[in-house]
């Protein structure tokens, strides 16, 4: 017997399913790359304002962080949406949890992007 994990309904759920796999591959590189660079190659004790300011002098790290931020939040929010659909059955509670999830994800996406894009070194 072969499992059919792909949504049979097509439409949005199929796109969401496909997005999780594509963004997942990219996030393996971006998120593990970020964690490895920060925590293994450098270490938390080396990270300070100067460290970030040095990184953000180059468009490479800004682009890297923007891509990581947006993919992680959309991938995470869609994953959490699946969990809410699976576990919260009461309509009112489900609407509340979904609203909280979408608000938080959108808020952190905007704040995170603004932090990266508007960064100005202060001495």
């Amino acid at each position: 017997m072969r499992l059919r994990t792909r949504p049979a309904s097509g439409g949005f759920e199929l796109y969401a399913w496909f997005f999780m796999r594509v963004s997942g591959i990219l996030l393996i590189l971006l998120a593990l790359g970020h964690f490895g660079y920060m925590h293994l190659l450098n270490g938390v004790e080396k990270i300070d304002y100067e460290f970030v300011a040095r990184q953000y002098r180059t468009p490479f790290w800004k682009t890297y962080d923007l891509l990581l931020l947006s993919l992680a939040l959309v991938h995470g929010a869609n994953g959490a949406r699946t969990l809410i659909d699976d576990y919260i059955h009461a309509r009112g509670w489900r609407a509340l949890f979904l609203a909280a999830l979408y608000t938080a994800s959108f808020f952190f996406l905007v704040v995170g992007a603004l932090v990266i894009v508007t960064f100005q070194r202060v001495r």
Binding site: V52, A72, G76, A80, L83, F108, G112, T118
Partner: peptide
């Protein structure tokens, strides 16, 4: 693990936002 990482991403955006106020708070 997915939920744990997502919650940390929220926290991590908030703590990184401190760089907008200069070295003092972030450090």
């Amino acid at each position: 693990a997915g939920v744990a990482v997502l919650l940390f991403v929220f926290v991590h955006v908030a703590d990184t936002a401190l760089i907008g106020w200069g070295p003092k708070y972030y450090n």
